[in-house]
Every structure is written in structure tokens, then in C-alpha cells.
């Protein structure tokens, strides 16, 4: 998922469905709209929104804890060096061996504007860790993530091909909100994409502008229907 082109994702939805009305579109807060909707990630883990924090617990126990940790690793993988090689061993089997066990600390889901996940042994430690955070989480619900769902919280879908040329997207804001568009160019450096879509041209507004009339007020919210450009129609309206 590397969330390619984060900046552009503020404006587009990926995996444009033909069915419009994504779930939660109306109910979710406005802030949610800024982020890409990625149905594939069940935790909906989004940069800068969700953070997993591991609270420091009893620093004086640190040395013992490391020994304990090493002992557990040894116990689990048979020999110490196994862990030392972890980065070289990319097999799925080895990844499975890293799944949480009963002795690992738990993941806790804290509901605030969105969710944050905190790793800790006890709920009281989660409450402690949340103290002093900008939003008061203390009155919010804290739920323990079941062991078998813990890895899903940390999984993200590979979005390597996100915003590739010729792929389809759906716009998220402005007059074209909800409209399908096709990507015609991707600018990696500036993190911008250029799209092609069926224009929604407000001919009346154009005429008003050309004739130097007062521009329509903001309250006059008219969203022109999508139509292919018609020279004939434009001409009929006096637009050359």
C-alpha cells in the first residue's frame, strides 16, 4: 500500500465502483472525507489518524524484560540466532510464528474521532497512556482487540499500482464529487495526477461572465449535469 501519492488521495477515491454511495458517506464526519476509502483494510489504518503506541511500563524492569524477551524468543524459535536473522527470513511460515501468543501484550482500540490502537498489558495502562492527549479519550470506549485480529490491525494492502495511468478513480470533492474519472498523467514529484472526465459546464455562468454580469452568489448552488462538450450548443448560447 505504500500509499502512493498521498497528496492526490485527498481528492480521489480509489477502486472506483459503479455503485456510488460508499457506505458511511453520509454518516461519517467530514474529516473522514479527506482520506482515501480503502475497503480492503479492515482496520482502515490511515496515516496520521491511527497510531499504535506502546506505553512505557516500569522502566526499572527494563533489563529483566529484555532477558525475558530473549528467553521467550529462544523458547519459541529454538535458538537465539533465529531471531537475529529475522529480517532475512521473509517466509510466510516465519511470519505466522510471529502471531501474538497468550503471553504477549494486547492491542486496545480506543474510539475517538477515529480509532487509535495501543499495545499494553492492561486497560488501566491504556487509560494512563491516553491521559493528556489532545482529545479526552478517557470517557471513550476502550475495547480489547481479540488475539486473532491483532495482525489485521497492522496489515495494509499494497497500493503499489495506486494512481497509475489509465486507471479509474472517483472524485471526492467539488462539483465533480462522485464522478468517475480516468487518470491521464501522474506526476510523482509534485504528487499530482491529471484526470479526464465528462465536464459539468455551467453555460449560464459562462455567459454571465462573458457579458460582465454579476457572478452567481455562492448560495446559488447549481451543479451542472455532466455532458460532453457540444460546440453546437455553445454556439446556440452565443459562446464561441
Amino acid at each position: 500500500m505504500g500509499s502512493k501519492r498521498r497528496a492526490a488521495s485527498h481528492f480521489f477515491e480509489l477502486e472506483a465502483d459503479v455503485d456510488s454511495d460508499e457506505e458511511g458517506d453520509e454518516e461519517e464526519s467530514e474529516a473522514e472525507d479527506d482520506f482515501i476509502e480503502d475497503a480492503g483494510v479492515d482496520s482502515d489504518f490511515v496515516l496520521r489518524r491511527r497510531q499504535v503506541i506502546h506505553p512505557q511500563i516500569g522502566e526499572e524492569e527494563e533489563e529483566e524484560d529484555i532477558d525475558e524477551f530473549e528467553r521467550r524468543i529462544e523458547e519459541r524459535y529454538g535458538r537465539k540466532s533465529r531471531y537475529e536473522e529475522e529480517e532475512e527470513d521473509e517466509t510466510e511460515v516465519f511470519q505466522q510464528a510471529l502471531l501474538p501468543t497468550a503471553t504477549d501484550s494486547k492491542l486496545w482500540m480506543v474510539k475517538c474521532a477515529n480509532y487509535i490502537y495501543i499495545e499494553a498489558d492492561k486497560e488501566s495502562q491504556v487509560r494512563e497512556a491516553c491521559k493528556g492527549m489532545r482529545h479526552s479519550f478517557l470517557k471513550n470506549k476502550i475495547a480489547m482487540v481479540p488475539n486473532k485480529e491483532m495482525s489485521a490491525v497492522l496489515s495494509v494492502k499494497n497500493r503499489e499500482t495506486e494512481f497509475s495511468k489509465d486507471s479509474w478513480v472517483r472524485l471526492k470533492t467539488g462539483n465533480y464529487r462522485g464522478d468517475l474519472a480516468q487518470i491521464v498523467n501522474v506526476d510523482d514529484i509534485r504528487q499530482r495526477v491529471t484526470v479526464k472526465l465528462i465536464p459539468r459546464i455551467d453555460f449560464q455562468a459562462l455567459i454571465n461572465k462573458f457579458e460582465g454580469n454579476k457572478p452567481l452568489t455562492v448560495s446559488n448552488k447549481f451543479c451542472p449535469p455532466p455532458r460532453f462538450w457540444s460546440a453546437t450548443k455553445a454556439k446556440a448560447l452565443g459562446i464561441q
Partner: peptide, 26 residues
């Protein structure tokens, strides 16, 4: 890279299950 997804703050990588799962424990 500026392109990445999800942020995790790790205070004690040696003890964190998440750090181990993500292979950032060391």
C-alpha cells in the same frame, strides 16, 4: 519515500508484539 501507509509509535521495540510482527523489534 513520502509514500507510506500507517504510522506506529514504538516506545519499547524489544517488548512490543507489534514491533516484532512488523519486524522493527531490533
Amino acid at each position: 519515500t513520502p509514500n507510506f501507509t500507517g504510522v506506529i509509535s514504538v516506545m519499547d521495540p524489544t517488548r512490543s508484539w507489534a514491533a516484532r510482527w512488523l519486524r522493527i523489534a531490533r
